[in-house]
Design a protein around this nucleic acid. Structure first.
Lengths: 348, 348
DNA sequence: CGTTAGCACTCGCACGATAGGAGTGCTAGT
DNA sequence: ACTAGCACTCCTATCGTGCGAGTGCTAACG
């Protein structure tokens, strides 16, 4: 991550880092004096002032007003994050919290995600987010069409434990016998992936008897939405109360918009996919780097988790741009790693 | 509801109602002058002042400080709510919004609830809440134990469309053939209620072959948690962003605690059951009338919805004690009524 | 006797002025 | 290249202070 970092010279870098760290800690604009004293740079405040002015010129810092200290811009945070060492940063207490959280084995991936999101929100004091696996590559272990009188329930069970259900109007053509035949035919799809089964189903619907036609289309549709996620996938959100904490920088109105956005699952799904597709492992999106976070003065730290080699989901945290990136990144990295181990294991 | 209303005399009642309405509208303490002018009571502000002092003495009003107007206490709101006429209060726009929301038929009760909660939050500008049906009396239409390699998925499908799943460790004794036999036996339970099926299962587990024993117990446990709701039932919450609105009276810290509470599903479940068990139809809980709402300066307006004659769930809104009770009560009443129609219909 | 006009009194709050201080930016000296 | 020194800026905390909303009391009125 640090390769394309703009050259600032080592001292400018150190000063910028010091400003970010101090500002994140205190929430107050940082002055030259503070840095000269606390950060271990062996120069006077006057020199720091020159550096600060230069950093402001370069767009890394800004000034609320003339006689105040400096605050990092999004670009300033970006430099800071990119200059962080790759690993570590986990405090002992956090390490222990993670270990004990996963001590008790839970087999249902959905439950695991909910727990992990809660864990992350507690570790970081921000809100946790997760996108559960997309179904496309998951093998189907069961497909059913259940006759419920005036309606029909279509049920799909995936190999990793997902269950997708859908209730639809009962086709007029369907007789009790139709269901039995359809289920037999559906049993033949066991083992195919969601994507594969969906394709095969469209074929079956066309070839098969007329009374099964509509039923099969409903099953195919169920499989489709399960893959698409725009309807079926629910973003898991937890610990939102943390965002309302007094310590957070948000104004009331921004806070309201933040909560609104968190409730719009579709948008969150989009944001999270934008955010992770960009980079391989841990990704950090700072304020204006994404339109949604920009509007909210928010940052997202997220990482994919995998089963074996394929990415199956994303987990992370949302917080203010003035975020403790070190702690957030370390926590997300550790939890994603743990989830990858778990998912790989659940998959045998 | 209005029977046991303490006698205040008609004018005191009118004054108190005027204070509540004005305070809810403006958010500012209400003075005698305002009432004398706007509320259609034909007396001077001096007389109103006497009434106000008396109402304060009686505990219905309070005073932020000597030279400010009056604010209703919880008891004041209670009097106001109890004195409201039983029906009506729905504005035309709201009535239309409700009608159009339910115009499109949705068959899945869970989805309907999510939608209804959103609708309520939009109608009232508070947060919507719902407790989905408890499974006890619902007939089971399908029970399955699915062999997923190292684990087993237990699946129960209810007649109203609920699906409960549970992933457990695979019992060592279970062979592939065990699953087939077990599923056949489980098919025999179709049509029993969750409660009935659970009882029967414990019997089957005892009588049946040893290799099925553990499997059956897992199924029984799945049915049990589905009924209990302390694990399985998820309170549906929506529109929480409304609570962060600037217009709401909450301080930041109270807001944080409110969000925290809303995330604790178990507590919310408890609150909602406390709140509705008390009264038959529409219930209003104001601030200190319940410990949880008291801590949060919040009120809850909720109503049960039924299928036929049996109550199957609860829906309502949470807002500040300074709430527009008329609108909230009318909206909740209307939505609950609509839900009852829908649920009764879905049940044939 | 309930109601009302009148009025003194209270008290929070918005407002303006002021002092203090944090922090800058510049200059000159090392 | 760095630093000490210093004038300057501009925010913010503080303190009166006056205003006005609103009360509560009293005395008069029908």
């Amino acid at each position: 991550m640090a390769e394309q970092q703009p050259q600032l010279g080592p001292r400018k870098g150190a000063v910028l880092r010091a400003v970010v760290e101090e500002y994140v800690r205190s929430g107050e604009p940082v002055g030259s004096e503070t840095i000269a004293e606390h950060a271990g740079i062996g120069v006077s405040s006057a020199t720091i002032r020159n550096e600060l002015a230069a950093l402001e010129e370069l767009g890394y810092l800004k000034h609320p007003h003339t006689s105040a200290g400096r605050i990092p811009t999004d670009a300033g945070y970006r430099f800071y994050v990119d200059s962080l060492p790759a690993g570590g940063g986990l405090r002992d207490a956090q390490r222990r919290a993670i270990a004990s959280h996963y001590a008790e084995a839970i087999l249902d991936l959905e439950e695991v995600l909910k727990g992990s999101v809660q864990l992350l929100s507690r570790l970081t004091q921000y809100a946790g987010l997760a996108v559960p696996p997309n179904a496309s590559e998951e093998p189907v272990v069961r497909l059913e069409v259940i006759d419920m009188g005036p309606s029909v329930m279509v049920l799909a069970v995936g190999h990793h434990g997902r269950v997708d259900k859908r209730v639809v109007d009962r086709p007029e053509s369907a007789l009790p016998a139709t269901f039995a035949r359809a289920e037999k035919r559906l049993a033949g799809l066991r083992g195919l992936t969601y994507a594969g089964a969906q394709a095969r189903l469209l074929q079956l619907a066309a070839e098969g008897p007329a009374d099964e036609h509509e039923l099969m289309l409903h099953v195919a549709e169920t499989l489709r939405t399960a893959q698409q996620g725009d309807r079926a996938t629910h973003v898991v959100v937890g610990g939102v109360a943390n965002l309302a904490d007094e310590a957070q920088t948000w104004r009331r109105e921004t806070l309201r918009r933040l909560f609104e956005t968190l409730e719009r699952e579709k948008e969150m799904l989009q944001v999270l996919s934008d955010v992770t597709s960009a980079r391989g492992a841990l990704s950090v999106t700072i304020g204006g780097e994404h339109p949604t976070t920009g509007d909210l003065d928010a940052s997202i730290v997220a990482a994919p988790f995998k089963s074996g080699d394929t990415t199956i989901g994303t987990i992370g945290v949302v917080g203010p741009t003035r975020m403790d990136y070190v702690s957030a990144m370390a926590s997300v990295r550790a939890v994603a790693k743990r989830l990858t181990e778990l998912a790989t294991e659940l998959d045998q």
